[in-house]
Nucleic acid binder design. Structure first.
Length: 202
DNA sequence: ATCAAGATTACCT
DNA sequence: GGTAATCTTGATA
């Protein structure tokens, strides 16, 4: 009997960013916070590679903001943008590669009430559409309450980590161009699960 | 010291 | 479809 729910280890993250990006789809993101366990299934990601990709934060070398992206794989890179939003990434590859994967869409599994409260403080639970909770990179951080404080967390620890799940077959995976960038716009480095309603944008 | 851009979102017409 | 919101970061226009 195959066990699907083991925590992913360092080796998973140390592979090439594009390989990890494809493998990330379907995996379970877990955040243990304030006695609660929050879980969601990853359905949409984008790969960034500072070596060859002008859109990556690491393209022009190491800075105070992006230094976590130069760690070996298996760390959380969180950045602040547009004066309002945080976005969370999974660092991949070997040390000093400067590669990471942006989490863009998730399906809520556990902690829906918590997500709803963080996303829509003024609304009642029954007015909230579950598909609007985690269908965007900044929405994910808002719902999980992920901020600068979580930047650099080791994903092989017990606070934030991923659980294994069966690989999404190629027939159910869409590979296309990334969203919201002005450089390297033609690289097909966005991956999402076909027909999944929790994907941020078709 | 100053400035422009930004891996987005929500709300408007 | 269009754009305001909002402020940290990195380069120096």
């Amino acid at each position: 009997m195959k066990k699907d729910n083991k925590k992913l280890t360092r080796n998973f993250y140390k592979a090439d960013v594009l390989e990890v990006a494809e493998n990330l789809l379907g995996k379970i993101f877990v955040y243990k916070t304030k006695g609660k366990t929050l879980k969601a299934k990853i359905v949409e990601v984008e790969a960034y590679n500072g070596k060859i990709d002008e859109a990556a934060h690491t393209f022009n070398g190491k800075t105070e903001r992006n230094k976590i992206m130069f760690n070996e794989g298996g760390f959380l890179y969180v950045y602040f943008t547009y004066g309002i939003h945080f976005c969370a990434n999974i660092v991949t590859g070997k040390k000093n590669e400067g590669t990471a994967i942006l989490l863009r869409g998730m399906e809520p599994l556990e902690g829906v009430k918590y997500f709803s409260k963080k996303r829509f403080p003024e609304k009642r639970l029954n007015e909230i559409n579950k598909k609007d909770l985690l269908n965007g990179p900044a929405k994910i951080c808002q719902a999980f309450n992920i901020t600068k404080k979580q930047n650099g967390i080791d994903l092989t620890g017990n606070k934030i980590y991923l659980l294994d799940a069966p690989k999404i077959p190629n027939s159910k995976m869409i590979k296309t161009t990334r969203i919201g960038i002005k450089k390297s716009v033609d690289l097909p480095w966005r991956f999402y699960i076909k027909d999944n309603i929790y994907v941020s944008k078709k």
